[in-house]
Amino acid sequence: MKRWRDYRGALLSGAVLLALTLALPYSSALFSSLFPELERPLYLQESFARLLLSHLAIVSASSLIAVSLGMGLGAWASRPHGQAFRPLLDSVLALSQSFPPVAVLAIATPLIGFGEAPALIALVLYGILPVVQGTMAGLASVPATVTEAARGMGFGSRQLLLKVELPLAAPVILAGVRVSVVINIGTAAIASTVGAKTLGLPILVGLSGFNTAYVIQGALLVAGLAIVADQCFEGLARRWPSLPVSA
């Protein structure tokens, strides 16, 4: 019973998003009363469910790649043989903070071409950074006394990483993954400017055609999706609280 309570926010927002996606196709009357001047008050070029699914597909593919690469890179930079690269990674991370995700998208596109590919590459590139940062910070936060004790008990360095350090670092890593995924959801919406089929499409079509109803429909779903993802991580973070380790 207690397990569900942690995911209350996620379930609630998920239900709202699902209801919204299913109800929007029937909301023509509502939007035409809100915007009587619009001839077509409902975005019909693509179904909202389809846009939502393709948005989810592009975000999960890029996040999956970003999380595995980012955790690998972060863990490697925290090992003795990767330690020398830490300052370099820190400079790259600091530099990337002044590089907005839109800029990565904008530069990737003319180099790679329009469509899903540049969006995917830009999302992966930008998504890696918070994960690396979270992994490095998480592993650094594991107290030396704990790793010493584990080594004393005969843990090899591989076992130490997998069974002691990563589980203890998990909450901080999870926070990094959360940032990465939430940013990716927003950037994927903007990626419809470069031809990726995402929930940003109704927003952009609406903006260029002065159709505020389209804009609202797209924006509601994008905002909903981001909140659902964030609430899922909130639930995970509650299930997986940082262990009270006394140094």
Binding site: V182, G186, L207, A223, D230
Partner: peptide, 21 residues
Amino acid sequence: LGVLQTIPSIALFALLIAPLA
């Protein structure tokens, strides 16, 4: 504030259009 920060920028910009108009 956390939920507000979660909403992607393009969606927040877009959602403000109707009330401000």
